[in-house]
Write a protein that binds this DNA or RNA. Structure first.
Lengths: 215, 215
DNA sequence: AGTTGAATTATACAATTGCATAACAATAAG
DNA sequence: CTTATTGTTATGCAATTGTATAATTCAACT
């Protein structure tokens, strides 16, 4: 009878975060089907009943987990620029290189992203989060492009941003899913060359100059 | 007692195809978790026991379904070029445009692709299929690039193919997941412009000329 | 026609699922 | 030191899961 597991009371924020992190871990490891209520609870170090105390349903926990994941991705993408150079060209090169290197390029991340895609296509709330995240990324890129001293008139700012974003996305995807298919630094170099070609700017030179300056 | 459902015997090929198609339909509609043994059987018009008669496990059916999906995608991509123009530049433009238009760009297709990604990362057989498919796509692109009359030496054939493939993949992804975020033809135009910029060739001109020639 | 092989259905089963509810115990307030 | 609040565990339940096995009935072959 009296053999219940001892426990500590934690703040709502802490518990929600733990449950969300556990859910994300499980989705990344075993896909959406691995993130069962019981597995999430066990991973978070609680019993399954507690989930219903913080989330009205598993679906809501899933939504919260996706929201949290997207928040982290946006934050990590924005933080990349904090330590970066000031020169507009070098700054863009820096951003592209960081977006195509670990920890952004990561099998776990792409697994998570894929694991939530069906929810994104089906659930309105998740779809809104996805749209907002996509636009946030693209806006960062567009700002960087806008700041460039361009040899050509920047009448197609939107198109350029979409194009560069697509290159980065495609390379991110392929580099994350098939890391062994590319040599070290190959993805970054191709990204710099491609974005540079699209924008008609030499990003490679800017990048090597910057990395040489800040080792 | 004697109230069993009447049935017809079918060829092994037919039954396997039906089961695979049913599984793909369900994954596209509701994600991997929707493709249960019973749902697949019902969709294929048989009872669930039959699945084990044609596949040793659900995992094997999943593998077969993924294999089939990739085969179809490769075939549909290759068939695009059949009716295309002969001029190398126009031919590449044609291929890019087709790869960024329906039915290649399709929410269902990207949902399916994502639904299998975890299997690809975990199951060796599925991973091999994925690698082969990725390389097949890239090789088609590389052949098209190789045939171009290039203003610059094509010393970086591999890099160019990876880059162009990434642009197409990224645009395919974004256009499929967020169709409403782009104007009609916008994705195609950006794809043509980007691939053209990377390869330093005017694909837009080639495309408009071709479409004008073959309406 | 009758017989046989196997494709197909039907049923069963243990394990797992999300969710609901009740019992408890940790912690803050009195 | 009590008391009350509620965070947390424990237990239960109906539905669903993949798989195994037995029971049938279709269809080909003589």
């Amino acid at each position: 009878m009296t053999d219940r597991r001892p426990y500590r009371r934690e703040s709502e924020e802490r518990r929600r975060d733990d449950l969300i992190s556990a859910a994300l871990q499980l989705v990344s490891e075993g896909g959406p089907q691995a993130a069962t209520v019981r597995a999430i609870a066990q991973r978070a170090g609680v019993t399954s009943g507690l989930i219903r105390h913080y989330f009205s349903s598993k679906e809501e926990l899933t939504r919260a987990a996706y929201q949290s994941l997207m928040d982290r991705m946006i934050a990590s993408s924005a933080s990349v620029l904090d330590g970066g150079p000031d020169d507009p060209i070098a700054r863009l090169a820096w951003f592209v290189a960081a977006s195509l290197s670990p920890p952004v390029v990561d099998p776990v991340a792409v697994g998570l992203w894929a694991g939530f895609l069906h929810g994104v296509q089906r659930d309105t709330a998740m779809r809104d989060v996805h749209i907002a995240t996509y636009l946030a990324f693209r806006d960062v890129l567009q700002s960087l492009i806008e700041a460039l001293p361009r040899p050509v008139p920047s009448t197609q700012l939107r198109s350029d941003a979409i194009a560069c974003n697509a290159v980065i996305d495609g390379l991110w995807l392929e580099g994350s899913v098939l890391p062994e298919a590319f040599a070290t630094g190959e993805i970054v170099n191709i990204g710099l060359a491609s974005v540079g070609a699209i924008l008609k700017i030499d990003l490679m030179a800017a990048m090597t100059a910057t990395t040489r300056a800040t080792p």
